[in-house]
Design a protein around this nucleic acid. Structure first.
Lengths: 339, 339
DNA sequence: ATGAAAGCGCTAACAC
DNA sequence: GTGTTAGCGCTTTCAT
């Protein structure tokens, strides 16, 4: 049951004033070695540990040395890799990390951030859902530093770090076009998610630039998770006028496409690299980004802000890397009418 | 810059006493509707949000409604799936989750848990490194509830939830034996990790029960991550007297073995299921456990303790499931001297 | 229905 | 060197 002992208890046991204990615990100079020893002894005897919460309440520098990390889904390998690198940066600086998943639900995002803020977090690394604009503005007005990662927060003046989703996608689509594909399906998660929207724009632009119409029957949005993706792919493959190639808008959708067997009979290129992509038959070509680098950079930006950097908001765009493993060349369609 | 407004500020703006504000914010009865409205208005105008940290300092029920989650590596899919389910359980109950990775380093574990405890966490879901016995005992004496998951904390009287690693491994080894293999290599992470030790015991017992000697040249411990595992496997395959089958002690080691090409030429069975295991050539047979179920159960146990359950420590063992996908039958050795 | 005083565990500022 | 006083933002207790 055990109430946690306080400085008062230690002071009584050591026969000194509370202030002397405070000094010893804080490692301040100006305490006689003898006295300090007595205090240390009492600390050990009672199993005392400082209450950092009470400490922060009174300290001049009103920083909680805690940040919040809010992602879409902590179980998703992309976000968990990002989370780990944020946590590593925090650990190096003696900060703690509160985590929360939004599940892409603005209400849960608001709940979580609200609770973080009530706990006086110094800053937030945020993969925003897109909602809660006014709410975040209020948080920032209260002094909470915010850095967005993976997606910008529309309408918010904050640092943001993400990859060039359009360019990355366009590269992938051109790769498929170069292999002779023209009926290229697009499979993505909810269009309201900024990355998904950007990737779809990249797809559309690349198609249009090649003089091709975008066939709406080959477009599927809103695929949450690999199961839904696999079902959609199976559907399309069995349909009357199937595509010859698939582009998948994130790792989970790619996974679903592979599960549905798309890569064995059709060309497939996905956004996000994933474990064992090179060991599949065929190996899957991907647009690769580095979640750990995103997390690290985001954390560094955030800690800069917490340390007082008040320059204008920065927007960092990292390049993607196209990894050609061959799956874009599958099932090359017969040479058609073109020259 | 923005100092966060306090109840005092709200009280002044609304022209009431601080106590009235406290009552409105807490949703207590006994405030005249008119007064409450004035307070609400001031709250909105100032963007006030209660400081839960100061609140908890004074409250009778001294619970921070925060738990700590400490895993080996948050980026590992096994632990991130576990983390997500712990977080979901916490969210349902209005608790916050602090996370930390130990990297299997007792010093970092101690750092992290110490910082959590100084922040007055109510409880800890812990994947213990194995060290810090006395330290944890002290934490528990201070009233911090602890539940171990994936591994028990040796020498600590706490709830623990894990799978039957020995039985699961023995099943996998017997599967290989039944396919005629006798030279079965064991590849594991650091033996000091309880799960790895247990799995190795399971391996040894199954081999011995079959009347086979364990060849120390076929044993490799201490493989951290897929890279080291791949190197070890490549080494063994190129050696003078290679095994005919491999057993890998966790998901990352299995991954390394696949990367090294072990499954194409030799039999391979791994502990832990992984994404796309069934899409590889050959599909990989595994001993599967459910990390989300582990996390959920651990969280439920912990919240039970926090809610006052002080029954004797429970130990929950979940069964594993062997999934035969064929990779255990690869490269069946020629019938030897036996009958 | 509202407020004043005390105090949670700690540190800042100032004594001595 | 050590102790005293005040107060961080809030809730508890008791008064009015």
């Amino acid at each position: 049951m055990a109430a946690r002992p306080t400085m008062k208890d230690v002071a009584k046991t050591a026969g000194v004033s509370l202030m002397t204990v405070s000094r010893v615990v804080a490692g301040e100079a100006g305490v006689a070695p003898q006295t300090a020893a007595r205090v240390e002894e009492a600390i050990r005897a009672l199993g005392y540990q400082r209450n950092d919460i009470a400490r922060n309440l009174r300290r001049k520098a009103q920083d909680s040395r805690t940040i919040g990390l809010v992602v879409d889904d902590l179980a998703n390998p992309f976000f968990s890799a990002l989370a780990r690198s944020v946590e590593d940066e925090a650990y190096r600086r003696g900060f703690l990390v509160l985590v929360g998943s939004t599940n892409d639900d603005p209400r849960r995002e608001r709940d979580v951030v609200s609770a973080f803020s009530a706990r006086q977090v110094d800053g937030l690394v945020l993969v925003p859902t897109g909602g809660n604009r006014a709410f975040f503005r209020a948080q920032m007005a209260r002094g909470v530093k915010v850095v967005c990662v993976d997606r910008p927060a529309t309408g918010l003046d904050v640092d943001c770090i993400a990859v060039d989703n359009r360019a990355g996608t366009a590269t992938a689509i051109r790769h498929l076009l170069n292999h002779g594909h023209t009926r290229i399906a697009y499979l993505g998660d909810r269009q309201e998610i900024w990355t998904q929207h950007e990737r779809f724009v990249g797809y559309t632009e690349a198609m249009t630039a090649a003089g091709l119409e975008v066939d709406s029957l080959l477009i599927r949005h809103g695929l949450r998770g690999h199961r839904e993706a696999a079902a959609a792919v199976a559907d399309m493959m069995a349909g009357p006028n199937p595509p010859t190639a698939f582009f998948s808008g994130n790792d989970l959708v790619t996974l679903g496409a592979v599960e549905a067997g798309a890569s064995r009979r059709f060309a497939l290129v996905g956004f996000d690299d994933f474990v064992l992509a090179d060991k599949l038959d065929p190996p899957i070509s991907v647009v690769s980004q580095d979640p750990a680098a995103l997390g690290r950079t985001a954390a560094q930006l955030l800690f800069g802000r917490i340390d007082g950097d008040d320059a204008a908001p920065r927007s960092v765009v990292l390049a993607t890397r196209f990894i050609d493993r061959g799956s874009g060349g599958m099932a090359v369609p017969p040479a058609g009418g073109v020259g």
